[in-house]
Design a protein around this nucleic acid. Sequence first.
DNA 1: CCCTCCGTTGCGTATTACGGAACATGGTGT
DNA 2: ACACCATGTTCCGTAATACGCAACGGAGGG
Lengths: 259, 259
Amino acid sequence: MSNNGGERDPALVQSVDRAVAVLELLARNGEAGITEIAAELGVHKSSASRLVYTLQARDLVEQDGERGPFRIGIGMLRFAGAVTGQLDYVRVGGPVCSELADRLGETVNIAVLDSGVALNVSQARGSSAVAAQNWVGQRTPLHATSSGKVLLAAASEEDQERVLAGDLESCAPRTITDPVKLRYVLRRTAEDGFATCMEELEAGLHAVAVPVFGSHGDVVAAISAAGPAYRLSQKRMPEIVEELRLASRDLSVRMGHPV
Amino acid sequence: MSNNGGERDPALVQSVDRAVAVLELLARNGEAGITEIAAELGVHKSSASRLVYTLQARDLVEQDGERGPFRIGIGMLRFAGAVTGQLDYVRVGGPVCSELADRLGETVNIAVLDSGVALNVSQARGSSAVAAQNWVGQRTPLHATSSGKVLLAAASEEDQERVLAGDLESCAPRTITDPVKLRYVLRRTAEDGFATCMEELEAGLHAVAVPVFGSHGDVVAAISAAGPAYRLSQKRMPEIVEELRLASRDLSVRMGHPV
DNA sequence: CCCTCCGTTGCGTATTACGGAACATGGTGT
DNA sequence: ACACCATGTTCCGTAATACGCAACGGAGGG
């Protein structure tokens, strides 16, 4: 289902591309066996085995003992560190997320705009027992998330129109797929300074987001809180937005952007 | 210098192995051009170009504009998230690091043993203004760091001897390069329950570390504090070691290893 | 104890990636 | 202004390389 639609860029190095696909699969599933990987990529078991073996030799993939499912390995942290070296949201954002997550009891995320999607760069789980998945590194559509709306509302006219003209994929029953309605929502978002997302990405999931400002008053990121619909009710929003605003200001300051 | 010594495991997928080497180079250097990458890997420019292009298509590598040096891309965060999902030191360690860093005013790190080196998995900066670099994901030699000594002192006899017999590279003027002296230091470390590192990794940098214990009383990680030599004086050590021990116990408990 | 499921190993083939050289494209120095 | 250098990309022929196949070895499960 996630396979290459048919055309493959011939300039790509096939095995490298497949290896990355393996990593993506593992990142998505948490863990997987060779057979499962092979099936998912549409390659033979032996090919999958070789790819995994190579990644394992470089510590990018590891398995429990001698014989068990494979998962992303510790060696990956080396590269993660190299990213954070340039992207401060991760390093600075961590504590801010944690603090707010503790206070709200909900999952808090920081996302940035990256080539047409919202990319989550930092996350802290709320104290609640409700299983919250890990969104870090995940790309989420701009039109179906609270962070995405905030980022898009602050983007240039052209960028907005490009998204509006594109495919507004329906992720959940209440996803906004009508460009006209989305344009209205974006205007509201810019005015209000926050965006909500009520079961538009996943059924039963609510979220709110506010912008994070850079030194020139431009929006550089969004910080959001997400949780089950029954807990993030409409009437609790003002309180949460206020908390998010405080965290956003804190984040701006910590990043060296005095307000 | 970092090339394959000569023999290459024929079971490895060559292009994948090279692609990972590219990523490692970028993680190490921060950034690099195609020519430099090709030279370092010992491959032709065109090969390097293809590899980078493939990685770029998957967002694992990015460049400033259209024409600039390459660096590790944001897409790498996806995998980093997957690691933290299973490796609890990162998630659980974050708050512990932060708290201790605040209290000490110094940089605090958590490191684990990973294939012959100390791998930093979590870090929190102290409040001090002194610029502290980001060590997360960095591999540091076991013989030239406080964390490394702690981890090595708890390792098996064979592992210790392997390091002692290996190349004790000199990182700074006071790095311990004498196997005999290092063996003595390791014994002292095991007895004392902590290790120091006085300008052995970098001139002007001091550090102290204590072990973190797992459920079976085994050493699973090390937690360390690092800072400029003039601030981490010898006579301040006992106080810091005590703080580190508290944090270590806290960490053990949070990871579900009651003492 | 057999059967099934999973992962690895050899092997032959042709797909695939590699290296060479020519080609673009800026940046630089005279 | 021009030539020159350095960097990265494209094209192409070759053979090295990774792939798929099938058989093998090991663990669990019935």
